[in-house]
C-alpha cells in the first residue's frame, strides 16, 4: 500500500546506521517496559496465582444468576436514557458551537480559535472525573451523570462537526450570498444540506460512546447500571456480576449494530 510499493523488496540488508537506530529504539522500548512493569508491580504470573486467583473467580462467575436480571433491567434502561438525553442535548449545543469553530464560515481567528480551544480542553477531561465534580455539586443521581456526558460528548461532537463544515463546497454559499441571503439563510440553505448526513452519523457514533461511558458512571454515584456492578463486585457476588456483564454485553452489541446499520445507510 501507498509508498511502500516503490521500496525495493529486499531491503533487509539495511545500512549499519539503520540497524543501530532500530536496536537503540528497541532497547529503549523494552527497557522502559521492564522498568514500568516493576514500577507498576505488573507480573503476568499474578493473574493466575494472585490474591483470589483469576481462574477461581472465573469459575465462580458461572452459572450466572438469571433471576437477578429483573433488578438489572431498570438500571440498564436508566443508563440508556442518560445516554439518549446527553447525546441529544450535546448534539443541539454542538450545532452553533461547530459553526463558530469553522474557519471557512467565521474567518476571524478571535471567534473560532477560542471556541476550539475550549472544546479541546473539554475533550481531555475524563467523563468520570466530570461526573465526580458534578456529583459534588448536584448530589448523587442521574443528573450529574447526564451533565458529565453532555460536556464530554460536546467536545467530541463539535470537533467532528467543525472539521466536516470546513470541508464543504463553498460555491453554493457564494451563490446564496450573491442573491441576497443573510447568514442564517446561508447556513440553512448551503451549509446544513451539505453536512446533515454526517451530522446524524456522528450523533449516532457519539451515542455509542455515551452508552459505554454511562455504564460506568454509577461507580461514582452518577446514576445507571454501574452502581449495581460496583456493589456486586465488592460483595463478591460473582453470579450476579456475570448477569450484569452479560446484559451489558448484549445491549452494547445490539446498540452498536443498529447504529452502524443506520450510519451505513446515511452516507
Amino acid at each position: 500500500m501507498m509508498s511502500k510499493t516503490n521500496q525495493p523488496t529486499l531491503q533487509g540488508i539495511s545500512s549499519n546506521k539503520t540497524k543501530l537506530r532500530i536496536s537503540a529504539i528497541f532497547i529503549i522500548i523494552v527497557g522502559f517496559y521492564l522498568f514500568t512493569s516493576i514500577k507498576t508491580e505488573s507480573s503476568l504470573l499474578d493473574l493466575w496465582s494472585g490474591k483470589n486467583g483469576f481462574i477461581n473467580i472465573a469459575k465462580s462467575l458461572f452459572p450466572p444468576h438469571w433471576s437477578y436480571a429483573s433488578t438489572v433491567m431498570p438500571q440498564l434502561i436508566e443508563t440508556l436514557h442518560m445516554a439518549i438525553i446527553a447525546t441529544t442535548v450535546a448534539a443541539l449545543i454542538s450545532i452553533p458551537i461547530s459553526l463558530l469553530s469553522a474557519a471557512n464560515l467565521f474567518p476571524n481567528p478571535f471567534i473560532h480559535l477560542p471556541v476550539r480551544f475550549i472544546m479541546n480542553v473539554l475533550r481531555t477531561i475524563p467523563d468520570i472525573l466530570l461526573a465526580l465534580i458534578f456529583v459534588g455539586i448536584f448530589g448523587v443521581g442521574v443528573f450529574p451523570g447526564i451533565m458529565a456526558l453532555i460536556i464530554f460528548s460536546l467536545g467530541l461532537l463539535a470537533k467532528l462537526l467543525y472539521e466536516t463544515i470546513e470541508s464543504i463546497d463553498m460555491n453554493p454559499i457564494e451563490a446564496i450570498r450573491a442573491s441576497g441571503g443573510n447568514t442564517m439563510q446561508v447556513i440553512a440553505y448551503a451549509v446544513i444540506p451539505q453536512v446533515l448526513p454526517q451530522f446524524v452519523s456522528f450523533g449516532l457514533y457519539v451515542f455509542e460512546v455515551n452508552v459505554r461511558a454511562s455504564l460506568v458512571l454509577g461507580f461514582v454515584g452518577a446514576g445507571g447500571i454501574g452502581l449495581l456492578l460496583n456493589q456486586q463486585v465488592s460483595w463478591a457476588n460473582y453470579p450476579n456480576v456475570m448477569t450484569i456483564i452479560i446484559i451489558i454485553f448484549i445491549s452494547v452489541v445490539i446498540i452498536d449494530y443498529i447504529s452502524n446499520k443506520i450510519r451505513e445507510r446515511l452516507i
Binding site: 460555491n171 457564494e174 440553505y189 444540506p193 451539505q194
Partner: peptide, 30 residues
C-alpha cells in the same frame, strides 16, 4: 441590491445534495 442582481457561476454553485426545486426557490431568499 443583491436581490436585484442575479449571478451565474462557472461551477453552477448549486447545493448538490438539495433538489432542483429547493435550489431554484432559494432565488427568493432575499
Amino acid at each position: 441590491l443583491r436581490t436585484k442582481v442575479g449571478m451565474i457561476f462557472q461551477n453552477y454553485n448549486l447545493v448538490k445534495r438539495s433538489s432542483v426545486m429547493k435550489n431554484v426557490i432559494s432565488g427568493r431568499l432575499g
